[in-house]
Amino acid sequence: MELWYTEKQTEAYGITAKIKETYVREQTDFQDLAMIETEEFGTMLILDGMVMTTVRDEFVYHEMVAHPALFTHPNPKHVLVVGGGDGGVIREILKHPSVEKAVLVDIDGKVIEYSKKYLPTIACGLEDPRVEVIVNDGYMHIHDHKNAYDVIMVDSTEPVGPAVELFSKGFYQGIYESLKEDGIFIAQTDNPWFKADLIQSVNRDVREIFPIVRVYCANIPTYPSGLWTFTMGSKKYDPLEVDETKIPEIESKYYTPRLHKAAFVLPRFVEDLCK
């Protein structure tokens, strides 16, 4: 008998993967969590029926959350990740020698626990001495830490369950206040095929708070539609003004210095959502 996992990405569309083994299925205090082994994408973390990461394609998302912002800021020392309990963004942050401290705040400790056990190549940076892991509400952490961070990265699920507040204008205002005077924030902002309204609303809210706002894209095959957007809000530095010839090469599989600016070149239909 074959077992398949299907994520319904809309009421009429989904993606499916053949399952080799189920490691964990648990209702945590915040969400339904599953860790499964798939034949095509390896180990897969699923929260509330949505694919969060897989061993095969995780590098795209994690590199593109971390590196565009960290190579735009000239000297990022203190970095916050809201969400991201699998540890992938933290792993990428640690590739930047200027970073003195990286703080991870995830509301669900079970995500962190099971990622360490079943996703060791992704969660490998969580024990690094430069990293502080906090199991708490990221929304409240932001509001309790003013003028504290050079870069803030929001590695959230889609806007359902505990992540709803992480897509609100009040949260973006809190991020602005939690950043230092030249700070940068980055958030995953879903896909333009099925969540165009979300991209428009986030872009509108962030533009009312930050003087520089840029949207960029990456290809992530296990995420809805495969085309994924990220929104950057910056107080001072424009990613399009970065001299790509001065971006050092780092260990990566997706991000490159030449891709830094190229990722901000949007398809016309995505560009239209950001006007």
Results as ranks from 00 to 15, higher is better:
K20H: 07
E21M: 08
Y23N: 13
R25W: 14
E26D: 15
E26G: 08
D32M: 06
M35F: 14
M35V: 07
F41A: 05
G49W: 03
V51M: 02
V51Q: 05
Y61G: 04
M64W: 08
H67W: 09
P68H: 06
A69C: 07
T72Q: 01
P76G: 09
V82R: 00
V89I: 07
E92D: 12
E92V: 11
S98V: 04
V99G: 06
L104Q: 01
D106I: 03
D106C: 06
D108F: 12
S115F: 10
K116I: 14
K117M: 11
T121H: 13
T121C: 12
G125N: 09
E127S: 06
D128A: 13
P129K: 06
V131S: 01
V131D: 05
H141Y: 15
H143T: 01
K146V: 10
N147P: 07
A148W: 11
D150M: 01
I152A: 11
D155G: 10
E158N: 14
P159A: 08
G161H: 06
P162C: 11
F167Y: 04
S168R: 04
S168W: 05
G170N: 09
E177C: 05
D182I: 10
D182W: 10
G183Y: 02
G183R: 05
I186C: 01
A187D: 04
T189E: 09
P192G: 04
K195P: 13
Y216S: 00
A218S: 03
N219V: 03
I220W: 02
Y223H: 04
W228L: 01
T229C: 00
F230C: 09
F230L: 02
M232Y: 00
G233I: 00
D238M: 00
E244Y: 05
I247E: 08
I250K: 15
E251D: 11
R258K: 10
L259H: 12
V265G: 12
